[in-house]
Computed example of a mutant assay.
Amino acid sequence: MSMERSRRARFTNVAPTAGEFTVAVLLAGLFFFLITPLVVQGGVAWATSGGFALPNGHLLDAYAGLLHGHFGAGLHRGVADALPSDAVIWVLTLLGEVLVLGAAVVLGMWMRDLTAGTGSRHGLATPTQAAEALGVPRLRKSAAVIRPDLYARSGRRTPVGSK
């Protein structure tokens, strides 16, 4: 293993690409969008009949009922009859979806802060922070070491075989 290869391997970015994040966010969003009406229905069933009820084994029936605008499909008859009108549950579902969307935005902003390419959490200081810590004269004197791609020393010999 050459030194150049080991240096390149050390500085390779192994963070997930934007495409991987996009797919993960879309799948998570679809899951939460589809599960929220059933969770709201279960919570309302818990409030009205005393037990949290999800359509166990009847998930397709429950979603078919939701597509037709009716809650309670896929639940036991007694639990479904105790539910309030569909309009009330739709309003609660809309509130639940807004709550889920708000939580997703907050979580997304937090994840962006954690995975962003700049910022102090990733070991990089802003130019202002570097100037405060080291002083401008020291930064200018060390510019060739800090950013050799921008401030290369003139008259420098390169090893044979490198570019």
Score class of each variant (00 low, 15 high):
residue 78 G to S: 13
residue 17 T to H: 04
residue 93 T to C: 05
residue 143 A to W: 03
residue 12 T to N: 10
residue 140 R to K: 10
residue 41 Q to R: 03
residue 77 R to Q: 15
residue 150 L to I: 10
residue 1 M to G: 08
residue 67 L to V: 01
residue 112 R to I: 02
residue 136 V to F: 03
residue 137 P to E: 05
residue 39 V to I: 06
residue 101 L to H: 05
residue 49 S to C: 06
residue 41 Q to E: 09
residue 142 S to A: 07
residue 77 R to E: 15
residue 136 V to M: 04
residue 15 A to W: 15
residue 44 V to T: 12
residue 108 G to Y: 07
residue 42 G to C: 02
residue 19 G to W: 03
residue 30 L to M: 07
residue 59 L to P: 09
residue 3 M to H: 15
residue 112 R to G: 08
residue 49 S to M: 02
residue 12 T to G: 07
residue 20 E to N: 08
residue 161 G to N: 01
residue 109 M to I: 02
residue 43 G to E: 15
residue 121 R to K: 15
residue 134 L to P: 03
residue 155 G to M: 00
residue 85 S to L: 10
residue 87 A to I: 00
residue 159 P to Q: 10
residue 60 L to G: 14
residue 55 P to R: 04
residue 114 L to R: 14
residue 142 S to T: 03
residue 125 A to M: 14
residue 150 L to P: 11
residue 56 N to F: 14
residue 77 R to F: 15
residue 74 G to D: 08
residue 82 A to E: 06
residue 19 G to H: 03
residue 112 R to E: 13
residue 122 H to T: 13
residue 60 L to A: 15
residue 122 H to Y: 12
residue 62 A to K: 10
residue 37 P to Y: 02
residue 106 V to P: 12
residue 43 G to N: 15
residue 126 T to H: 04
residue 93 T to N: 06
residue 12 T to C: 10
residue 5 R to Q: 11
residue 161 G to P: 00
residue 17 T to K: 07
residue 62 A to Y: 09
residue 126 T to A: 05
residue 111 M to K: 14
residue 113 D to T: 05
residue 33 F to L: 05
residue 100 V to W: 00
residue 71 F to N: 01
residue 140 R to T: 05
residue 108 G to N: 05
residue 124 L to E: 11
residue 73 A to H: 07
residue 76 H to V: 09
residue 105 V to W: 11
residue 121 R to P: 09
residue 154 S to N: 05
residue 7 R to E: 12
residue 103 A to E: 04
residue 151 Y to R: 03
residue 27 L to A: 14
residue 17 T to F: 04
residue 158 T to K: 14
residue 113 D to N: 11
residue 157 R to Y: 04
residue 98 V to P: 12
residue 158 T to D: 13
residue 116 A to S: 08
residue 22 T to W: 10
residue 13 N to F: 01
residue 86 D to G: 06
residue 96 G to Y: 00
residue 115 T to K: 12
residue 80 A to L: 02
residue 111 M to L: 15
residue 31 F to H: 08
residue 16 P to H: 13
residue 56 N to P: 09
residue 101 L to I: 02
residue 28 A to M: 04
residue 103 A to D: 04
residue 22 T to Y: 07
residue 139 L to R: 02
residue 92 L to Y: 02
residue 155 G to H: 00
residue 44 V to A: 09
residue 49 S to W: 04
residue 151 Y to C: 06
residue 72 G to M: 01
residue 49 S to A: 08
residue 21 F to L: 05
residue 134 L to Q: 02
residue 32 F to P: 01
residue 105 V to H: 08
residue 113 D to W: 11
residue 91 V to S: 11
residue 97 E to T: 05
residue 19 G to C: 02
